[in-house]
């Protein structure tokens, strides 16, 4: 009925609309990387791509200090001990500091873990630069072993004046299940 009567370009409109539908479905997924980029730029949710930063080349701003606090958490189902050596450090913006994080694996099996960072206030994540961090990679730890993991960082001297405290939190997640048995077996007991 209607098909014969309708103007002939029905299919063209339908095709365009269907393309829009497919495009919007893809857009839904494209929001995932877009969101990451957005978070990197704005410090949304205290999230940032945990990339390695170059060493500081700007002058250290000794006129003020910022309190950097460390929080460690272990995801449930994970028996590791995981603590910062110090709770907090006071740094001048631009000054590079190293803080050790202590981890131990009390179980009878080799394990692999990944630490996921988060920063509060979110805005501060834009100015927190890590030159070296255990969180860049997964951390293997042999049965019963202990380790000290270093994190070297500095705050960008351009960090806004109204940020006095920066809290860096790490949550340790168990990644052992995703690892191959060979990789697990290859984890060596630390020498110390």
């Amino acid at each position: 009925m209607a098909e014969q009567q309708g103007k002939p370009d029905n299919t063209r409109i339908v095709r365009r609309l269907l393309l829009t539908v497919v495009g919007m479905f893809a857009f839904g997924f494209a929001l995932v990387p877009l969101y990451d980029v957005f978070c990197d730029i704005t410090g949304f949710n205290g999230r940032f791509t945990d990339g390695q930063a170059a060493a500081n080349t700007k002058t250290v701003d000794t006129s003020r200090t910022v309190n950097v606090q460390f929080i460690t958490r272990v995801n449930k189902g994970m028996p590791w001990g995981f603590e910062p050596e110090v709770n907090s450090v006071r740094v001048h913006p631009g000054e590079t500091k190293v803080v050790n994080f202590l981890a131990n694996n009390p179980t009878g099996g080799n394990m692999i873990a990944q630490a996921i960072p988060s920063v509060a206030p979110g805005e501060a994540s834009l100015y927190l630069n890590k030159v070296e961090c255990f969180c860049f990679n997964q951390q293997p730890l042999a049965a019963g072993a202990k380790t000290a993991m270093p994190m070297q960082f500095y705050l960008d001297p351009e960090i806004p004046d109204d940020i006095h405290t920066v809290t860096l939190s790490y949550t340790m997640y168990d990644m052992t299940e995703n690892a191959t048995p060979d990789a697990l077996a290859a984890i060596a007991q630390p020498v110390n």
């Binding site: 539908v21 857009f27 929001l31 995801n75 997640y173």
Partner: peptide, 29 residues
């Protein structure tokens, strides 16, 4: 509807794969 229903479809699909197929769109780990 054309603009946003597909986005909902995307969201539920991500929920499905997160729950059953090991992706982690919404999982910090």
């Amino acid at each position: 509807l054309i603009a946003v229903m597909p986005v909902l479809a995307g969201a539920v699909t991500m929920v499905l794969t997160d729950k059953y197929f090991g992706t982690s769109f919404f999982d910090a780990a």
